[in-house]
Amino acid sequence: MMTKLKIAIQKSGRLSDGSLNLIRQCGIKIPRMKGALKAEASNFPLEFLFLRDDDIPGYVQDGVADLGIVGANEAVEKDKNVDTIHHLGFSKCRLSIAIPKEQAYNGIADLDGKSIATSYPKILGDYLKEQGLKCEIHEISGSVEIAPNIGLADAICDLVSTGSTLMQNNLKEVESIFTSEALMIATPGLDAEKRGIIEQLMFRINALQTAGNNKYILLNAPKKNVDTILNLLPGMRSPSILPLANEEFVSIHTVIAEDDFWSKIEELKAAGAEGILVIPIEKMIL
């Protein structure tokens, strides 16, 4: 019987969508019926468990799932015995303290002695301790933003992405205490066969992430300025230089980090580069 990895994924929401999109971009086919709690990939030894995100660290610790994709906020808050395999780079957000918009705020000392409502008592408690503050923590789940409006707490500590939910509830963000993104976590001590499957999966994920951070660049350049342009556009090893019908020009093809390209664009143009194309890369294997 072929060994399969079990991977736990949030059953719905932004983290679920990002996780499934990542897996599918790896070329893994996931049949899923609406409301299903389990599924198996048809072309990779992977079985999916669709769970509540706050349950995933515990399931991975207990070996019910070998792998899990979960927000760093949940991984740290639940504090389970799991191995962090990889930072996946999506579902980025922050855990922040917010207070009613009309209240003045002069600094973190203003929070001392206040009551704060949160679904993340561990992360918040650790932060307050580091800051030397004594606050009353009200642990609640869901609808944290309403707490100041109903007199339950003076402030809240909750996940913030765009800040629109805070605005809708007449709150303002005053302290960001934790940054989060999707993580791949694993059960400690997996056997060699399962670790081998994880390596195959991570090979595909790394190829996607490397591609996402780089772009394929094509440009035309005067032959006399090739050395200058090559110094501005370092390739993976050595750029490709191809002849053109106009013998005074060549075509240069290379791969470069997108941020590096934009910081060099004016210098490239000044060196005579023209007809510049920037093309996304689907996968990149180094």
Results as ranks from 00 to 15, higher is better:
206 N>E: 09
196 G>K: 11
240 S>P: 05
212 G>Y: 02
225 N>P: 07
201 L>G: 03
174 V>Q: 07
226 V>E: 15
201 L>R: 04
196 G>V: 08
182 A>K: 05
240 S>M: 12
173 E>C: 12
173 E>S: 15
261 F>D: 02
175 E>C: 12
217 I>H: 00
234 P>H: 03
206 N>I: 01
254 T>K: 00
194 K>F: 14
228 T>R: 15
204 R>L: 04
189 G>A: 14
213 N>G: 06
229 I>V: 14
219 L>G: 05
252 I>Q: 05
184 M>W: 03
254 T>H: 01
192 A>C: 12
206 N>Q: 11
231 N>G: 15
225 N>I: 09
215 K>A: 00
192 A>V: 15
243 P>Y: 10
199 E>M: 12
242 L>F: 14
259 D>P: 06
223 K>D: 12
200 Q>W: 06
178 F>L: 03
199 E>P: 06
244 L>E: 14
209 Q>Y: 00
238 S>R: 10
237 R>W: 06
189 G>M: 10
243 P>C: 07
222 P>E: 08
179 T>P: 05
215 K>I: 01
213 N>V: 01
248 E>W: 10
186 A>T: 09
227 D>E: 13
200 Q>M: 13
235 G>N: 04
258 E>R: 01
209 Q>V: 02
243 P>T: 08
240 S>Q: 12
259 D>V: 11
237 R>C: 07
196 G>T: 07
175 E>W: 09
188 P>S: 07
187 T>R: 12
187 T>D: 07
176 S>C: 11
208 L>V: 02
215 K>Q: 00
192 A>I: 13
214 N>E: 01
200 Q>L: 15
252 I>N: 01
232 L>F: 02
253 H>N: 13
253 H>Y: 10
205 I>T: 06
243 P>H: 09
205 I>K: 01
260 D>L: 03
189 G>P: 06
249 F>Y: 14
228 T>F: 08
176 S>F: 05
242 L>E: 11
207 A>N: 04
251 S>H: 08
236 M>S: 14
215 K>T: 00
236 M>V: 12
210 T>F: 00
229 I>Q: 04
190 L>Q: 13
180 S>Q: 05
252 I>S: 03
193 E>Y: 10
260 D>Q: 04
219 L>N: 03
201 L>V: 06
230 L>G: 09
238 S>W: 08
189 G>F: 08
225 N>S: 15
212 G>L: 00
249 F>R: 14
171 L>Q: 05
254 T>G: 01
201 L>C: 09
214 N>C: 00
183 L>F: 13
189 G>Y: 08
192 A>W: 11
221 A>F: 09
234 P>Q: 03
208 L>H: 02
204 R>Y: 01
259 D>N: 15
218 L>H: 07
252 I>R: 02
204 R>E: 01
233 L>E: 00
187 T>S: 12
172 K>A: 07
242 L>M: 13
221 A>M: 10
180 S>I: 04
198 I>P: 13
256 I>Q: 02
194 K>D: 12
246 N>V: 13
258 E>P: 03
255 V>F: 02
171 L>A: 06
246 N>L: 12
246 N>S: 15
261 F>M: 02
206 N>L: 05
205 I>Y: 03
237 R>G: 08
208 L>Q: 04
203 F>Q: 15
188 P>K: 08
208 L>E: 03
245 A>K: 13
198 I>M: 10
200 Q>P: 09
227 D>W: 09
248 E>H: 14
184 M>H: 05
